[in-house]
């Protein structure tokens, strides 16, 4: 008992003062989900595979929308993405006061539009 008490006096604290000191994420951790939207083809496979159905893809409006508060961070969409443009950061998403969706708009370049019209 006494041994344990002395050990606890000299050893490092088991906890971290969290917001001041943040542990870096592990290399393969599934943190915040993001989409490199310029590479995205809006194919919608991620929306179809998602078990919690938190992704909506609209090809009409070129929108890719994620509800990060419904996402369960399983990584199914990242594995399924044919363009590998979905990415999990290793850092976790910070808490928020208001629940907002992540809405990404894919800009279609004018050149591509012309081709499409022709």
């Amino acid at each position: 008992m006494i041994k344990n008490i002395f050990k606890n006096f000299v050893s490092k604290s088991a906890t971290r003062p969290y917001p001041i000191e943040v542990r870096p994420g592990f290399k393969n951790a599934r943190g915040e989900l993001d989409n490199k939207v310029s590479e995205c083809t809006l194919c919608g496979i991620c929306a179809k595979k998602c078990p919690s159905q938190c992704i909506t893809v609209s090809r009409k409006e070129n929108l890719w929308e994620l509800n990060p508060f419904a996402c369960v961070y399983c990584g199914i969409c990242v594995d399924a993405c044919p363009k590998s443009c979905l990415v999990h950061y290793t850092e976790h998403k910070k808490p928020a006061r208001v629940k907002t969706n992540l809405v990404l708009k894919k800009e279609i370049s004018p050149k591509l539009k012309v081709v499409a019209n022709a």
């Binding site: 592990f26 393969n28 951790a29 399983c74 999990h88």
Partner: peptide, 24 residues
């Protein structure tokens, strides 16, 4: 929990299974 996060990606609900094997 750290082992889980470093190997599987999540701390508790590790999501490593798929039909036919493991994902990581």
């Amino acid at each position: 929990m750290d082992i889980n996060e470093a190997t599987a990606g999540n701390r508790v609900i590790v999501s490593v299974n798929q039909v036919g094997g493991v994902r990581r």
